[in-house]
Amino acid sequence: MRVVVYQGQYGVFKKDELDLTMPAVQTCIGLYAISEQHDYILCAHFDTELRLLQNLQDIKQSLERKGISIMSLRATIFGGDGIQSYMRCTSPSTHIGNKIIHFLKTQGSFAEYSSQNYSGFVPKTFNFIYKRGCKITEGRNPRDFSGGSPLAEQLAIKRIRVRPEHYTFAQAKMEDVSRLYL
Rank of each mutant, 00 (worst) to 15 (best):
M1Q: 13
V5M: 10
Y10L: 11
G11D: 01
D16R: 11
E17V: 14
L18K: 04
L18W: 13
L20Y: 04
L20I: 03
T21S: 15
M22Y: 03
M22I: 10
V25E: 03
V25T: 08
V25P: 09
V25R: 05
Q26L: 12
Q26Y: 09
T27S: 14
C28G: 02
I29C: 10
G30I: 01
G30F: 01
L31P: 03
S35R: 03
S35Q: 00
S35D: 10
E36Q: 13
D39R: 07
I41D: 00
I41V: 15
L42G: 05
A44Q: 04
H45Q: 10
H45F: 14
F46V: 01
R51H: 14
L56W: 05
Q61Y: 14
S62M: 02
S62G: 09
S62E: 08
E64M: 12
R65H: 14
K66G: 02
S69E: 07
I70H: 00
I70L: 06
I70V: 07
M71K: 10
S72K: 11
R74W: 06
I77F: 08
F78K: 02
F78Q: 01
G79D: 00
G80L: 00
D81F: 00
D81M: 00
G82W: 00
I83C: 08
Q84E: 10
S85N: 09
S85W: 06
S85V: 01
M87A: 15
C89D: 09
S91W: 09
H95T: 12
I96D: 02
K99G: 04
K99V: 03
K99C: 13
I100A: 02
I101L: 11
H102Y: 15
G108C: 13
S109N: 11
S109G: 07
F110L: 12
A111C: 11
E112P: 08
S114R: 05
G120N: 07
V122Y: 00
P123R: 02
K124A: 05
K124L: 01
K124M: 08
T125Q: 14
F126Y: 12
N127M: 10
I129N: 11
I129T: 04
I136T: 02
I136M: 12
T137R: 14
R140F: 15
R143C: 13
R143Q: 15
G147V: 07
G147P: 09
Q154H: 08
Q154F: 07
L155D: 10
I157Q: 08
I160G: 07
I160K: 13
R161S: 14
V162L: 07
V162K: 12
V162F: 09
R163D: 15
P164S: 06
H166C: 09
T168Y: 07
Q171F: 01
Q171D: 12
A172F: 07
K173N: 06
M174V: 06
M174R: 02
E175F: 01
S178M: 01
Y181E: 04
Y181I: 06
Y181M: 06
